[in-house]
């Protein structure tokens, strides 16, 4: 498998502002690669640095240091060549709502040096693909949110990019439209062998991707397929509630020779064959355990294990 995106020791810091004296480090020396025709997800809570990485990869922002190669082209020195072969879907719609669907695509085509019959054919092809042919001459602001997002996708695909970069693509879509959009992405990957890179803060969305990189405070804390990351945790998650979790945790540490995590007052243990472990646990600490829950690990468990805190702190 070929590497489509190579990110090597990438660091980005924002200069000091009036509100903040020190420069803010958004990405801290991150390194990873994205393979050909995979759907790759940058997963992270707000402020994790994923938007900064998106801006850098979409050529909006120049990184402070590090090397990025996209299809063997250097992002800093061959920006224009890279702009030709990537497609970008922004979180904020980039279509002009006062123009019709077709006018938007014609405009986009011209920016990518497409014109005449070639452009008309391409527009027809893309509109057929996203099933918008019957709405081609409607002004975009008259379309529903889901349809507008499809226009966005058609726009980004018009130049037949080999790498499609999407920022929070499912934001503001209802579940139906979200599923719909997902199917379009899968089709692009399988039929047109486009490599897809998307950012997300939604764990379920990341579950459906081939591989994910979990970002936290500018660092890549986990990298791999969702399946592999969950398996690495080791079997089952046992969550225990207690009136005095601190004391219980200390006694557990003595008993098992390793300290369990306490997250939001809940004691968490990762363990193979959890169902066999629970009876032992309950017998060992009689009267101290209120409830015990056994569950299969989720990506949030992966996140907690790697960072020691929840994905959404303080309900954010």
């Amino acid at each position: 498998m070929r590497e489509v995106v190579i990110i090597d020791k990438l660091t980005h810091s924002y200069p000091p502002s009036r509100r903040q004296y020190k420069p803010r480090i958004a990405l801290n020396n991150i390194t990873f690669t994205i393979q050909h025709s995979e759907v790759f997800c940058l997963l992270g809570p707000n402020g994790s640095g994923k938007s900064t990485l998106f801006r850098i990869l979409s050529t909006l922002l120049r990184p402070t240091s590090g090397i990025i190669k996209i299809f063997d082209l250097d992002l800093i020195h061959q920006t224009d060549n890279i702009r030709h072969i990537i497609g970008v879907v922004f979180q904020n719609p980039s279509v002009d709502k006062k123009l019709t669907v077709r006018e938007n695509l014609v405009h986009q085509g011209h920016l990518y040096n497409l014109s005449g019959n070639l452009l008309n054919d391409r527009i027809l092809e893309m509109l057929t693909k996203v099933k918008l042919l019957d709405r081609a001459d409607d002004v975009v602001e008259k379309l529903s949110g889901g349809l507008q997002r499809r226009v966005e996708l058609a726009k980004a695909m018009l130049n037949k990019p080999r790498l499609l970069i999407l920022d929070e693509p499912s934001t503001g879509l209802d579940p139906g439209a979200r599923r719909d959009f997902d199917n379009h992405l899968q089709e692009l990957r399988t039929v047109d062998s486009v490599t897809v890179l998307l950012t997300s803060h939604i764990l379920e969305e990341a579950e459906r991707c081939d591989r994910i990189a979990i970002l936290d405070q500018g660092n890549v804390v986990a990298l791999g397929s969702p399946q592999k990351l969950k398996e690495e945790l080791g079997g089952d998650i046992i969550s225990i509630t207690s009136k005095d979790p601190e004391t219980l945790s200390l006694s557990m540490k003595k008993y098992f020779h390793s300290a369990p995590h306490i997250i939001d007052g809940i004691i968490r243990i990762e363990r193979q064959n959890g169902h066999e472990f629970i009876p032992e646990l309950v017998q060992a600490f009689p009267g101290q355990i209120d409830t015990v829950t056994l569950s299969k690990p989720t990506l949030e468990d992966v996140f907690i294990q790697k960072t020691g805190h929840r994905f959404w702190e303080n309900g954010k």
Binding site: T59, L60, I86, S94, V95, L111
Partner: peptide, 13 residues
């Protein structure tokens, strides 16, 4: 603000 400009900025022009 609406986002249109972003797609112009990332275009190879």
């Amino acid at each position: 603000r609406e986002g249109f400009l972003q797609s112009v900025i990332v275009a190879p022009i």
